[in-house]
Design a protein around this nucleic acid. Structure first.
Lengths: 154, 154
DNA sequence: TATTGTTATACTCTATAACTATA
DNA sequence: TATAGTTATAGAGTATAACAATA
């Protein structure tokens, strides 16, 4: 089913809209407006408000080195956006927790990123609902995505 | 119309599927497989086979410095993937043109990037067609995207 | 012994400034 | 005088290696 011609065309068009269209520089623009690097903004997105995330989990998700996560954490801490907190049971682990200010910046970042481009205007209200429902069905079937959402929900 | 609740939800879900889901590391994985940096791969995508693009156009599209485009061009040239060619009428301008090898690598890169994630499997064939049609309608209304496609079509 | 995180270091990516050639 | 591209250089981003603390 996944190799349906229409499915491939749908996926390709989705990539083009996000990477080539009006919104292709959204991340740069949003992070510049918040005075953050794209990497720092991406980190905020992975920290559910009120809940600590082990630094190792971030390195695993991004397939990056642990030392880079240390670097990101240092920069966010300097700006007062996150705190390092010890893990409840394993004292090797440090978790990253958003501060109140960090949660506010995260919310602002999401507002900027999730603002739809004007090209969405090409769809009627009914079509926009149909699109949302189809995309949500895909998201629900995406193991990684649903896992990270379950985490975010606490 | 664009600020429809469903439209915002659709856009947010689209971002989440691409940036957080199964496919979130597609670009890294694909470029690693081709032995290119993500920046080099992105450059190949902006060079329509058989047609030269002025280096300045790339810098403008990405809002980056011209010297960085020089750097990208140097690296692609070293690998035999592009050639610098003089512009027909303005001798200040150099255009970047894919070599035969460059066009082949570009095609392979597209195949890797545009391979849909398995989560698309959650949709029936009919739904995949409906999704494709909705996305294409958005793409057609995206001024930047249609402009770059017109260019690619020659 | 294996794992988490840090430090020191080096390499890649990207920008700034000064320059050459062309318009 | 203004624009396209290059060079040299500096800064940010990211990885590697060696290390300390904990499991």
């Amino acid at each position: 089913m996944v190799s349906t011609k229409a499915g491939r065309e749908a996926w390709q068009t989705m990539c083009e809209i996000l990477f080539e269209g009006e919104a292709h520089d959204r991340i740069q623009v949003a992070s510049a407006e918040l005075g953050l690097s794209p990497g720092l903004m991406k980190t905020l997105f992975h920290l559910p408000p009120g809940d600590g995330v082990p630094m190792r989990d971030l390195a695993d998700h991004w397939s990056c080195d642990a030392s880079y996560v240390t670097n990101l954490a240092d920069q966010l801490e300097e700006r007062g956006l996150v705190e390092r907190r010890p893990h409840a049971t394993d004292r090797r682990i440090k978790t990253l927790v958003l501060t109140a200010r960090g949660a506010a910046v995260r919310e602002r970042a999401q507002a900027l990123l999730y603002e739809p481009p004007s090209s969405l205007d090409a769809l009627t209200a009914t079509e926009q609902r149909a699109l949302r429902d189809l995309l949500r069905k895909i998201a629900a079937g995406d193991a990684e995505l649903t896992a990270s959402r379950a985490l975010a929900a606490g």
